[in-house]
Design a protein around this nucleic acid. Structure first.
Lengths: 339, 339
DNA sequence: TTCCGGCAGAAAATCGTTTTCCCAAACGGG
DNA sequence: CCCGTTTGGGAAAACGATTTTCTGCCGGAA
């Protein structure tokens, strides 16, 4: 690391400098670094010593120009980087970083123009691959005009089943919640969730109904309560449910905000949670789940794992082993005091 | 865009192909593209037409190799990508994207080893600049070993005053809150905030006290209530305050979680908000502020603007016009129904 | 002594641009 | 008609690595 007389300052040495210091040619120096070619061990040592002395770091632009690889993947998020895409993003970054690959961030803000713009940019940079993530679990139309670049869709799958997608397993989430409630003796379960035009709400609701049927049960109110993903809706829905089916002994909610609204409403109406009624949320969003009174039992989608899986599949595809299709990541039940 | 016989398929044409199709030399083709050199308009047109026909896009690796610029900046976040760094990040991406610069994401998870690792990576990639953001407003020690690379610290300033930093103006935040409360007739103000070892809590508290003094007022309880950034603490503190100073007519809280806790506690104790007591939060975190009953008046730190300013300063520095020092971004008062 | 195989390492080609230098033709003024 | 001065455009040298090809040189065998 110490400055060597006659050579450029540390950090900006080029391979030619290393070669000169070691008394060999550039080609030989390169071979010494990259394993390859035959050479006297002593020569290799000299080169390695020179690398050390000059703190040489290869110029990645030169490498990329030669190999055509950028050791970079694009990460496109469609919703500003929200509560859902963030953990996915971190999981992906984690898995990629291990492989010396960096992440180029692109936020489309849900705008198709911006998406095309970023796409051009990523192609110009010759990224090795692309991960696309969205806020919702609704399928999205695939990116266009990226023929040769491996792409993985995370969280929001592509509508094309031949694309690679990694999603959270809504069915497993519903199963964990329902099984947990049944196992703790609840049989009169209500389901309050978000808007019916969201796949997440529809799918979880459908699975819930099916799972109850398998135990010869039905929803306590006879129907799913679709609404919004908000506490306000949770509070309103709780009252509706209690009026329609006063013997309801559990709420399975489509997300933690709704669940918290439900819990607040129950408490304020003097209904004991979990004594008389259990509440289970979805998302394991800590600020909601932990601040809730009582703290929420909830379903964790393992979003970081979704991101990690997406990254791993992308690496496979970059390595020439693409596995088309949708892969699901199972959820996890987090039991707290509301059930 | 249509395939031209005898030429590689669209998207992978090189400048040599363009030149051949236009009947000029590579150098001339380059000049035609980049404005420069003198040439007959007709020749330039021929080149441009060829570019169009072949859908030519310059190889950025080649450009970067030649110019030494990567048109990329590193964005290091120290805390996963949390609630605070996300808007900063988006603001920065927005400002940089306009300048054809892409963002390379690095998350250190607060780990020094990882930080060094990412730093090496960024230097190897010859990024044009670096933006460092953190979760807290406490000053952080500057990055080491990046001598020649322009760096801007966002949200968490560098302890070295000669570095470039962009932070939220805590003083303006406190002023907006206090002035608003005074203007609406409140004079017995309590201040509940986070841990005293957080600069954000200390600074806002200090400014609040100073501002009150300027109006010959003091805190209703005679002291600042330091605690945690949580709803639980907000609820506890509200009761403490009401017991110590029952004539308190306003709470200014260090963040929206605390404010929500305070509001909840007041409501449950039958204290009318905003009728008898006003509540003002800090952060304008929508899920908290909007879900609160009543919706919270709060201070917005304009974090996206912090990110944007950081990006702009970085661009200036990259362009050779660095302006060392700390720059502050003023806050914004968002009035809702809690005051 | 001659020839050949093997090996260490040098030299050169390559990746795709940008940029500098240089040459030829055209042009204008005296 | 001749000599500068523009002008348009080509050739070639960077940029910094990797990879392929080529050249000595040595030892051993015929």
């Amino acid at each position: 690391m110490a400055a060597v007389p006659g050579f450029p300052q540390a950090g900006r040495a080029k391979l030619a400098d290393v070669a000169k210091l070691a008394g060999v040619s550039v080609g030989t120096a390169s071979k010494a670094l990259n394993g390859g070619g035959r050479m006297r061990p002593e020569t290799r040592q000299r080169v390695l010593a020179a690398v050390e002395a000059l703190d040489f770091r290869p110029n990645q632009h030169a490498q990329s120009l030669h190999t055509g690889r950028s050791w970079t993947v694009g990460l496109m998020t469609t919703d500003g980087i929200g509560r859902f895409s963030t953990p996915v993003l971190l999981g992906a970054e984690d898995a990629l970083g291990a492989g010396k690959i960096s992440v180029l961030l692109c936020d489309t803000r849900g705008d198709a123009i911006r998406e095309q713009h970023h796409l051009r940019n990523l192609m110009d940079r010759r990224v090795d691959g692309i991960i696309v993530t969205g806020r919702r679990t609704d399928p999205r139309s695939p990116l266009t005009g990226i023929e040769p670049i491996p792409t993985v869709y995370a969280l929001s799958p592509s509508v094309d089943p031949d694309d690679m997608s990694v999603v959270s397993d809504d069915r497993s989430g519903a199963r964990l919640a329902v099984d947990h409630l049944l196992a703790t003796g609840r049989t009169r379960i209500a389901h309050v969730t978000g808007p019916a035009h969201h796949a997440a709400a529809r799918d979880r609701a459908q699975h819930t109904v099916e799972l109850l049927e398998q135990s010869s049960l039905a929803l306590s109110t006879g129907r799913v309560h679709f609404g919004e993903w908000s506490e306000t809706w949770g509070r309103r829905a709780a009252e509706t449910v209690l009026r329609a089916a006063p013997d309801t002994d559990a709420f399975f909610c489509g997300n933690d905000q709704i669940a918290r609204g439900v819990a607040d409403s129950l408490r304020e109406n003097g209904v004991d949670v979990p004594g008389r009624v259990a509440v289970v949320g979805y998302d394991n969003w800590d600020v909601m789940a932990l601040a809730c009174r009582p703290p929420l039992t909830t379903i964790d989608m393992n979003l970081a794992e979704v991101g990690r899986q997406a990254a791993l599949r992308l690496l496979d595809a970059i390595g020439g082993k693409p596995e088309p299709g949708v892969r699901t990541v199972p959820c996890r039940l987090v039991v707290r005091e509301s059930s």
